[in-house]
Design a protein around this nucleic acid. Structure first.
Length: 494
RNA sequence: GCCCCCAUCGUCUAGUGGACUAGGACGCAGCCCUUUCAAGGCUACGACCGGGGUUCGAAUCCCCGUGGGGGCACCA
């Protein structure tokens, strides 16, 4: 490990949606910064103008905000090392690339894209590895300068050593060595004047004082190239950590576009921006992803603060992890149950109002305790509790008929239940249950039959929160009204 | 094809040479609780990829296989 003050960064490119993998990278960076008292930085790597997606940067920031892992420095909050968007730093890169050319560590290349494509094709046909053939590497510096000054289009390539090998050290994987002749003369500066990732990231990491680079394992194969670039500049290397990749649930390969769409149909998603709408909580999502690539011996239910306390960068696992949505559901439900009544009520309220229901907070506060342990996702509140806020319920006539009984008998039970409840001054759990129990005893019907009919009549559904508690919240008038309606339905269907 | 990485229950993982009859979590199955559905409690099932070394001793270290994954752009 190096001795620099801890500064870590997340450097996404605004070319697509913000997904699980990006979120986990951000999380680990965040946890490490908090754990060590360091800074967490967001840098937008927008040097590819062709793939730029409008709104992508906004989604990144919204997602981080929703998860509660906002950076200390970044394009929105600023900082002493800005700007934090690479396109706003473009002047910097040309200067550094020029420095490398001066040193003889890089060279201008005038080959056209067409020629490069042709070379690649020929190499492939000969079953050779596709790579730059080195034509412009042989150019005399004077001639190269004459051509660039004449206005000819060019890129700048790194002059990779032909011999030897390069070794970089990854914190969780150990030394990684690659033969230099296996590395290409990668392009550092594109003909549009913007840098490629390879050079831009190294320059910015250096300029921003990044101490630890925690990034995805897709960078593992170009890792030695990055080490070479840093050495060419004569800078100090950061500590490197390459995270594992996420595999699709089957464990066979990365999530494809098609599979991402499938997941959404199932009520799941790999995109953070969707998870919110699907009723997931930041707490549940965070707990879920933090454990894919990092493990704890026991007590795996954690809040963000607890994660910070327990996080240890040395314990990150290098092996790929298959996504398991069932586990997300589990953690989501668990964290929902951990919320206070007020907090949970406030979080589910929008789902009711979104469905066009009027939801008074005082009533909701009484409903929430009845459904909280039944919720896997926040939007489940609608399936369990919408009848509390509806004027009328529309029970399925068949559901009103208890198991083993016919319509006439069920109607009799409903009418009797009405009589009993109507005779009471109030319908609370404490007052209503004893006489109903007594009726079950004396009637010869069983509890499941009697309460089943009552449940469907009052809630309109076969599955509901506890019956008597529910009736107490619904209120005497509505309970009796719904019971009467049930008797009517039963009589009509007889 | 070439290069790199990885390898413990179905899945996520604990394990850093002896405390391993390999621990936890999800899922699955059963039981308890119970007016439904959950939640909760208990129990069961379930793994060190294979082969060689090193060592008194290996899930743990080394090598070779095998399997899986990633990368080979004027994309990141």
């Amino acid at each position: 490990m190096n001795s620099k003050p801890v500064r870590v960064r997340m450097a996404p490119s605004p070319t697509g949606r913000f997904h699980l993998g990006s979120a986990r990278t951000a999380l680990y960076n965040y946890l490490f910064a908090r754990k060590t008292g360091g800074k967490f930085i967001l840098r937008i790597e927008d040097t590819d103008q062709k793939r730029y997606v409008p709104g992508a940067e906004e989604e990144i920031i919204n997602s981080l905000e929703w998860l509660g892992i906002m950076p200390d420095e970044g394009p929105t909050q600023g900082g002493d090392y800005g700007p934090y968007r690479q396109t706003e730093r473009r002047a910097i890169y040309g200067k550094y690339a020029g420095e490398l050319v001066e040193k003889g560590a890089a060279y201008p290349c005038f080959c056209t894209a067409e020629r490069l494509a042709k070379v690649r094709e020929e190499q492939l046909a000969r079953k050779e590895n596709p790579r730059y053939d080195g034509t412009c590497r042989l150019l005399e510096p004077e001639e190269a300068r004459r051509r660039t000054e004449a206005g000819e289009k060019f890129v700048i390539r790194i002059k990779m050593p032909k011999e030897g090998s390069t070794t970089g050290v990854d914190l969780i994987r150990g030394p990684i060595t690659i033969e230099n002749n296996a590395l290409d003369d990668f392009i550092l500066l594109k003909s549009d004047g913007l840098p490629t990732y390879h050079m831009a990231a190294m320059i910015d990491d250096h300029l921003m004082g990044i101490s630890h680079v925690i990034r995805g394992s897709e960078w593992l194969s170009t890792f030695p190239l990055h080490v070479n670039i840093i050495r060419a500049f004569g800078w100090e290397e950061p500590t490197w950590v390459h995270l594992s990749v996420f595999l699709k649930p089957s464990g066979k390969g990365k999530m494809s576009k098609r599979e991402a769409a499938e997941a959404i149909k199932d009520g799941h998603s790999i995109f953070i921006g969707d998870l919110k709408n699907l009723g997931y909580t930041p707490e549940g999502v965070l707990n879920w992803i933090v454990l894919m690539g990092w493990g704890v011996a026991e007590d795996d239910v954690m809040t963000l603060d607890e994660m910070v306390q327990r996080f240890n960068i040395d314990n990150l696992t290098p092996s790929p992890a298959a996504i398991n949505f069932q586990k997300l559901d589990h953690f989501n439900g668990t964290h929902i149950r951990l919320l206070t009544n007020e907090d949970l009520s406030a979080r589910i309220k929008p789902y009711f109002t979104g469905a066009g229901l009027k939801v008074p907070m005082d009533t909701l506060l009484k409903v929430t305790p009845l459904i909280r342990e039944r919720l896997v996702t926040l939007d489940d509140c609608l399936t369990f509790a919408r009848f509390f806020f509806e004027e009328k319920v529309e029970p399925n006539p068949e559901d009103l008929i208890a198991k083993g009984l016919d319509a006439r008998q069920s109607a009799e039970i409903a009418r009797k239940a009405y009589e009993i409840l109507a005779s009471l001054p109030e319908i609370t759990h404490a007052v209503a249950e004893p006489p109903m129990r007594a009726y079950v005893e004396s009637s010869g019907y069983n509890a499941g039959q009697v309460f089943g009919i009552l449940r469907v009549a009052v809630t309109g559904q076969k599955v509901s929160p506890p019956l008597f508690e529910s009736m107490e919240v619904i209120g005497r008038a509505k309970v009796l009204e719904r019971l009467q309606e049930a008797v009517k339905i039963l009589m009509a269907g007889k």
